[in-house]
Amino acid sequence: MNGPFWCGVDVGSSYAKAVLVDAEGEVAAEAVRRTGVAFDVVAAALRADLLGALPGAAAEGIARTVATGYGRDNVAFADGAVTELTCQAVAGWHLFRRAVTLIDVGGQDTKVIVLGPDGRRKSFQMNRRCASGTGAFLEEMAARLDTTPAGLETLAARGGEAVALSSFCTVFAKSELLSLIRGGRAVEDIALGVYDAVVRRVVEMAPLRDEIVLTGGAARPGGVLVRRFEAVLGRPVLVPAKPQMTGALGAALVAMRGGEASQ
């Protein structure tokens, strides 16, 4: 497979993701790594992962690369950089082809992006200067419950009655967890309450009127976060097959269009 391919690299705060698309815009290869602290190194490693997954593929077969995410300006081999809001919008339109509202629960921030019926972004909202409602919140709460983010979801899946966390602040929420543990609440119910806290923060960011598409590493299809969103919104939530990859996919599609953000 010699290409041509178009490459998208999404260097997020927790994970870096990369996608190659072919001339039909179909995903040819994808890769994920922990971001770490050397953005340029992880980006280069991801590109090697992509090429390694395609027998016969070489860097010369990549016609254009666009970077996105927090480390978008650190991808030395990228031909351009575009924000993840644009990339998520491009991927959302590519995958669903209708007016939807995208919710991307990222590691460091959460975004709500409204797509119009023409696929253009109508508006967007980001969380304020606070980790509540983000993947970082889940990571912090998991650590307080002495488990991993995956372990937190396992616990929450066994929860029955979600504990209501009153705090908007991640640091205060951690101390609130201590009180709940001390009070003898079931850790599974506390874990479920952590997910509800994320959902509550997100639904207050913008009116969620259209169909909802949930993306981000925590938005596992059929997972707890998706189910809690559906419970709060009272309607099904759409989730792409690879919700963690949509930023990188969007970047690859932007690369395919010559690096312009236009839909």
Binding site: T83, T86, D109, R121, F124, A261
Partner: peptide, 29 residues
């Protein structure tokens, strides 16, 4: 979200992302 004088209330990355994304949105429009 920032402040007139107190830079402890300013997050460079968040402000930068919001402005860049908005410019991209305006350019698309």
């Amino acid at each position: 979200h920032s402040d007139l004088n107190d830079l402890r209330l300013h997050a460079d990355e968040g402000v930068r992302l919001a402005l860049e994304a908005f410019v991209e949105q305006c350019a698309e429009a």
